[in-house]
Design a binder for these strands. Structure first.
Lengths: 334, 334
DNA sequence: ATTTATAATGGAAGCGATTTCATATGGCGT
DNA sequence: ACGCCATATGAAATCGCTTCCATTATAAAT
């Protein structure tokens, strides 16, 4: 693979000049510019990104930490960020932590090793301390779905509590009184926040929480299925269930229908996240919309402004509100 | 951020020694090794990946070209490759082409600029010539879902014909005789291959193809819906339909149910791809599983063997077989 | 005509690692 | 006690760029 040296020789100019026409960092007479361009084309020259980053101390790439490469949530996260960055000729480096502390740390170390100009982290297991330390290390960091006081202004999260509160209240307003809850894993802060929103909504309407109506799932279908099965088989009566997320809801619906019951006629369901599938399944799922794509895009815009100094009159706020999406999985009762 | 020089000074050794303990490329006396390790820890040293790649001419990263960051297909592709590479301490660089020739080319150029040790390309719009050229340029390339004669041994694709054949034969064995087909756009090679598999299955069982039972869709729901509507309204009788892909099947099911008919009681349906959603819809779709995750993993293993010379007794074949997933959209008839 | 400012280009020093080659050290056999 | 070899370490070149500074050519000003 040809180097800048070969190009410069081929064009009969210095390396500096080649660099200049590549980057447009200084004026080059049209004639020499053309010579260089031709030389580059003839040799099939492709600048070595590593050498560039090393020399310029800029990688023009942004590191993205996610948990998994598949799944609609992370898909939207990646797509949202990439769309914005692509338009500004920035590249993203994606690394997955798989919800494992060690891997997540390795992933961040990798991104730092690549000297990313900024990081967008959806960190599940990393401690606040670790994150704060990285942020103070010099690299610009944005945290998705997390709110650490010491990092105010670098966090971008959804109001989980409010979303869950809204979902629960929605059911209450539809006349439901016995409302079950299938939580996400409680070591996850968002799972806790959502659970708390449910509790607050009950509280506000003077409904006391029944422990028999709460189960912990795993944020996946399997957990929703098992939790709902337990709930149904326990004999406790309830007319609705709030799910920690949509996937949990899918599992719950399966369990319910397997027992010959109907959603929403016998039991109403609301989810959280508004995954793409949720509008396709039957019944279409009533859920809380989680605008992750927009959040990711917002993170990207912020970085463009703060790190790359692109002019931008946009103002940002850290906490984005969730919204209800009414579909067909909830029935009013009287 | 500290450099290897600072580490070496802090530890009172040479840079070479630091490099050696980092990479384990040569024996270092335990005592000095510890000194270096401590220095690294104390300074919070993180090797600069760009400098490493530049100096060693190895990036330990593999470029991945996909069309989109979201969507179950590409999610599985990324995840499958990453899982394997991660276990071997290799990193992936993902770039999306968005089904656009210019962007796709840019994406590849980017990956080449990053001096990836190998490329895994799911190229939709790039020409055979371009791909062949890149492959001859020195970088190891693997093509997913594509079969170019000149690049034999570097292609990894599914046996569309066999998959479709299997699906059709499955219906025949369930007693169906009048089997319709909703094809994908025939300019796509995979759509043609799938259609051919259908024809071969009919042929094998001495069923002649009825032109009135074949429609061309667009591989999306809308096309499936329209094609099925035409079929149903045409008056030709059939008891089952083979769809070019799952999305087509979704559309077809809608059209069928809209006419008050039931799947599978009145009409059986089989799809192709086995999207995650297919196990969630009702009825759960019987379909042909497209093992994209495994294909991606296979590509990764191949690269580990060919590029990184990891010992591997695995033998590879280019064409992977599809398999039937029996669910609830097909009924036996007598 | 001479000076001065300006624009275009080149030379060479980094950037932070790896790697080759040379050197110092110590143990061993004789 | 001598030389020899193996082993651990260091010095310095190198990878392919960017960028600062110097240099030359050109135009404008006096």
């Amino acid at each position: 693979m040809p180097t800048i040296k070969e190009v410069s020789e081929h064009a009969g100019v210095s390396q500096a000049t080649v660099s200049r026409v590549m980057n447009g960092t200084a004026k080059v007479v049209e004639e020499t510019r053309v010579k260089v361009l031709n030389a580059m084309k003839e040799l099939g020259y492709r600048p070595n990104a590593h050498a560039q980053s090393l020399a310029s101390n800029r990688s023009n790439s942004i590191g993205l930490l996610i948990s998994e490469f598949d799944g609609p949530f992370y898909g939207a996260l990646m797509a949202g960020a990439e769309e914005i960055f692509r338009k500004h000729k920035k590249r993203i480096l994606i690394s997955a932590g798989h919800g494992d502390e060690k891997l997540e740390k390795e992933a961040v170390e990798f991104l730092l090793g690549c000297r990313c100009d900024a990081l967008v982290l959806h960190a599940e297991t990393l401690s606040d301390e670790y994150l704060i330390e990285q942020a103070n290390q010099g690299t610009h960091v944005i945290l998705i779905n997390r709110n650490i006081a010491e990092m105010e202004g670098q966090c971008l999260y959804i109001d989980n509590e409010q979303g869950s509160f809204m979902a629960t209240e929605y059911l209450i307003e539809k006349g439901h009184k016995n409302i079950a809850y299938i939580a996400g894993p409680q070591w996850k802060h968002d799972a806790r926040e959502r659970f708390w929103g449910y509790q607050k909504a009950l509280g506000k309407h003077n409904i006391s929480l029944q422990l028999g109506l709460v189960e912990e799932g795993n944020f996946r279908e399997s957990g929703g299925y098992q939790a709902a099965s337990k709930l149904l088989d326990s004999g406790h009566k309830f007319t609705a269930v709030v799910c920690g997320n949509d996937q949990t809801a899918y599992g719950a619906i399966s369990a319910i229908e397997e027992r010959g019951l109907k959603v929403p006629d016998d039991i109403s369901i609301v989810g959280f996240d508004d995954l793409p599938y949720s509008s396709l399944i039957k019944p279409k799922l009533t859920t809380v919309h989680f605008p992750i794509r927009q959040i990711a895009a917002e993170a990207a815009r912020r970085i463009l402004q703060d790190v790359y100094k692109e002019k931008n009159t946009h103002t940002f706020n850290s906490c984005v509100q969730a919204s209800m999406v009414e579909r067909n999985s909830v029935k009013s009762i009287t």
